[in-house]
């Protein structure tokens, strides 16, 4: 375990539409400051909410979220969001060229720097002049990642970023994430896809019904899991067998 985790959740609760069913309940966990941490769980488990409280697009109704030991509620929220970049489930290109998109993140960003960021996302510099909304889904999602990198974040939140992509684009984005994580940008990645978890995770958090059900390393995850979690992960082995012979 790291001496200093990236995120620390302490008894975090986020209320839902009805008080009876909170979206997150008594969530205490730590996210290590390196590698890719994958949050898995069935739909409605609160995975996206967990991510959204990290950059305060949602705020906890109780409990504390700390980044590098600092309570995020005490930080300037706009500065926090530039430190904690986020890529969403659906690509969200803004109208205009790819350059325009990057300049929303970093006004006045010079082309040389923009090209460098695109290269990190395996996009040719020629993309700068292309209308962002006319790119393919996979390209759009990489532009969104590039746009996020333009704020020079310390950490990336990825909210099911491949759910709108086909298989080649999915694998491409996963490889990209691996390189960024190896370059020392830790990633918190939400997925409902257990095969994907098996491919990219260094650490795993299993969320069920708004609560942390299990935490572990992918290799030993199933063997150390309590029975309820093993039922959920049961899908992992079969999906893995099917997807990766």
């Amino acid at each position: 375990m790291d001496p200093r985790p990236l995120f620390e959740f302490e008894a975090v609760r986020v209320d839902g539409r009805t008080a009876a069913a909170p979206r997150l309940d008594a969530v205490s966990l730590t996210v290590p400051a390196h590698g890719i941490t994958v949050v898995v769980g069935p739909s409605g488990a609160g995975k996206s909410t967990l991510l959204r409280v990290c950059n305060r697009l949602d705020v906890p109704d109780a409990g504390t979220v700390r980044l590098d030991g600092q309570d995020t509620a005490t930080l300037d929220v706009l500065a926090l969001r530039r430190r904690v970049g986020m890529v969403f489930q659906q690509p969200t290109p803004f109208p205009g060229t790819v350059r325009d998109n990057l300049q929303v993140a970093q006004p006045g960003l010079p082309d040389a720097e923009a090209a460098e960021i695109l290269a990190r996302c395996l996009l040719d510099p020629a993309f700068l002049d292309r209308p962002a909304t006319e790119l393919s889904g996979g390209e759009q999602q990489r532009v969104c990642l590039a746009r996020t990198l333009a704020t020079k974040p310390d950490v990336l939140l990825m909210d099911e970023p491949t759910s709108a992509l086909d298989q080649p684009a999915t694998l491409g984005l996963e490889r990209l994430a691996r390189r960024l994580a190896d370059d020392d940008i830790p990633i918190l990645w939400v997925s409902h896809d257990l095969a994907q978890m098996a491919r990219i995770a260094d650490h795993v958090i299993v969320l069920i019904g708004g609560r942390v059900a299990h935490v572990g390393e992918p290799a030993t995850l199933t063997s150390t899991a309590p029975p309820a979690v093993r039922d959920f992960l049961g899908g992992a082995a079969t999906a893995e067998e099917r997807g990766e012979p």
Partner: peptide, 13 residues
């Protein structure tokens, strides 16, 4: 809203 939240997530006010 997804576009607006993406802007907020980039640190826009």
């Amino acid at each position: 809203r997804p576009e607006v939240e993406a802007r907020l997530a980039l640190g826009q006010s």
